[in-house]
Every structure is written in C-alpha cells, then in structure tokens.
Design a protein around this nucleic acid. Structure first.
Ligand code: SF4
Ligand code: SF4
Lengths: 132, 132
DNA sequence: TCATTCAAAGACTTATTGTATCTATAATAT
DNA sequence: ATATTATAGATACAATAAGTCTTTGAATGA
C-alpha cells in the first residue's frame, strides 16, 4: 500500500511543466534526466497524462510536452487518478448490503484523503517549489 | 495502491472477535472458514495482531484467538498499521529540504485519512455490523 | 504420562503488479 | 529527405502479495 514511483514522476513532471513555458514544449529526455529515470519509461507515464487531457505532446523536432490550456484547474487528485486509476483503495469480495460499516469507514477515510488532494491545485504551489 | 487482502481479513476478524466472548477464544479454522481463506494463512496474519498487542492467542485444546484487555481503545488505524506497516504512502528518492511542497501535500493528505481511521474505534461500530 | 488439539514459525511456491528496456512506427520541423 | 521526437507493443526483470506445507511447541484432557 504505497503510491507508485510512476505517480512520483508524474507529479514532479507536472510541476516542472507548470513552471515552464506554456507554448514551447520540453523534451522527455530533459524531463527524464532531471529525475534519473529512462526517457522511454517516463514517456509511457506521460502518455497517460496526455490521455487524461492535462498535458499535450508534440512530436518531431523541438517536440516534447507542455501543459494543456486548463492548467489552472489541475489538481493533485487528477494526476494521481490518471496514474493509479480511480478504483477504491479498499475492496471486499462480497457486498453485504448498505449497512456494512467496514466499507463505510474505509471509504470515508479514502474520501478524506482525496478531498485534500482535490482541493490542492498545481497552481497553488508552483511558486513555492523548486525542483533542482 | 490498494489495501491488501490481509488488511481485509484482519478487519473482519477483529470485528468478529469483538462481538464474541471476551474470555472464550475462537479457533482460527472457524475464523478462516467464515472468510473463505486458509487457516494457516489467516494465522500468519493474526500473529501480527498478537504482536501488536491487540489480540491474544491460546494454544492447545479449545484454543484460538480473543481480544486483549484494552479492547475499547482499538482503532481502525491500529489494525491497518499492524498489517500494512507504518511507512509513509508517498516516498521520494531525495529530500530537497523542508520547503518541498509535494511532500507536504501528500503527507497531509495521508494524515487526513489516518485521522479518520484513528478516530473510528472498533467499539463504535461493532453493534451495527453483521458479518454472515 | 501420553496422545490430541491447537497456534507459531519458517521455508517454500505461485500469482500479480511495478518498473524498466528495446524496438519499431508515426509525426513534425528544417 | 532527413533528423528528431513521441507512441505503442513486446519483452524482461524485480518486488510484493498471496498462499501452501511442514515442523515445532504449548496447552489440555484422558
Ligand atoms: S462485511 Fe462489509 S466489508 Fe466485509 S465482505 Fe461484507 S460488505 Fe464487504
Ligand atoms: S522535490 Fe520534494 S518530493 Fe521531489 S524529490 Fe525533492 S523532496 Fe522529494
């Protein structure tokens, strides 16, 4: 029960892209080198963010990745869901009706966490962060 | 990023033990059959709860497991930590100082979830639940 | 005392997921 | 056209989850 490294890479990349130019894309090799991960692997991760509509990719010379238009609305939860999926953290084999309190407690706990991640936007923190 | 099945088993067992007699232990085979899991595997899981001090084991004839004395203080978080460990959900390779906002956001989100799990005690819900 | 019943522990297997690489393909600027 | 860059798929490797098997040791009752 941990967040995957892919989520880590995605968060760092998003923060970097937020700080960068909104028009000129950054190549994946630069993004990968910055984080000590292989370009092809990071590319595969970023493709999920592309499909989620939060970044855009540009092929060819001087290509790379840049944020999409609606950059101000991107939340931590958006990024995490794009990478980890949206499945519930606690799954049980059977469903014993609505009165099941175990599920209720676990689900509510998860919602507490997600609520915080949803209320924190990339914009809120980009100014403070400095990734080397 | 999901809770393991072991956590599922532990929660259900704890709830069952809470409803049961505080003095007469329940054998692991009964607990296991109830959840459709092998007795030896469940035993391995429950041993972690024993070491965490929340249940007691009784060997020999008519042995099994029962809650420990301080049954009223056991929280969901206690059970989950005993099974999943207490490591942080989000780990990063490097530590770029206290001003890192990524870590701050992720850690606070985790604390929101843990806070809810810590405030929910087994006692609070035992009366409502009915596991078949 | 002795056999029976039970949990504890460790070695071991298997399945699933995470992490990553490699190669080929498609898109784009010059 | 050619160099550059992302995309996709196959593949490989590692780590963890999930579970089995067997042995050991503790408690009970006959
Ligand atoms: S008691 Fe609740 S958590 Fe457990 S199996 Fe039934 S529905 Fe799922
Ligand atoms: S920027 Fe923050 S989260 Fe990222 S590696 Fe540095 S300390 Fe860790």
């Amino acid at each position: 029960m941990r967040f995957t490294k892919a989520t880590n890479y995605a968060l760092h990349t998003m923060l970097k892209l937020f700080e960068a130019s909104p028009v000129k894309p950054i190549g994946v090799q630069e993004l990968a080198e910055m984080q000590g991960v292989s370009p092809t692997y990071l590319s595969k991760i970023l493709t999920r963010l592309v499909k989620a509509g939060m970044i855009e990719s540009v092929s060819g010379v001087n290509g790379g990745y840049r944020l999409s238009r609606k950059k101000d609305d991107i939340t931590f939860l958006d990024i995490i869901h794009a990478i980890e999926g949206t499945a519930s953290l606690f799954e049980c084999n059977f469903v014993h009706g609505d009165e099941c309190t175990i599920q209720a407690v676990m689900k509510e706990a998860e919602e507490k966490m997600e609520s915080h991640l949803k209320n924190t936007k990339l914009m809120d923190m980009a100014s403070k962060a400095n990734i080397s």
